[in-house]
Amino acid sequence: MLAESLLLSAVLFTIGVVGVLTRRNAIILFMCVELMLNAVNLTFVALSTLYGATGQVFVIMVMTVAAAEAAVGLAIIISIFRHRQTVHLDDINLLKG
């Protein structure tokens, strides 16, 4: 099951990347990133069957960080929405040089 797990993880990660590249809604983009994180979690868990509990500990860390990141990121998106009344990615281009 290990090989299949890794393959599944890769596929999910790829889907997450495609989503990031394709979607222009900021929140959905964010969720695609979460999908990528989940795929990575699957990889860690799969490998922990071989290499011990450290993999699972790492998964805990990833989840924690994902939670923190989600909170802060959504707060930012809300802040942007308040200013620009949109979450469309093409409109958020103040960094345009």
């Binding site: 394709t22 979607r23 809604n25 929140i27 989600a70 909170a71 998106i77 809300i78 469309h88």
Partner: peptide
Amino acid sequence: VFLFVVMLLNLGHPSELADIR
């Protein structure tokens, strides 16, 4: 939390949904 924010920002309207490239 994600869903909360989606609801908060009231993004379900069709006019804002045309975002796929």
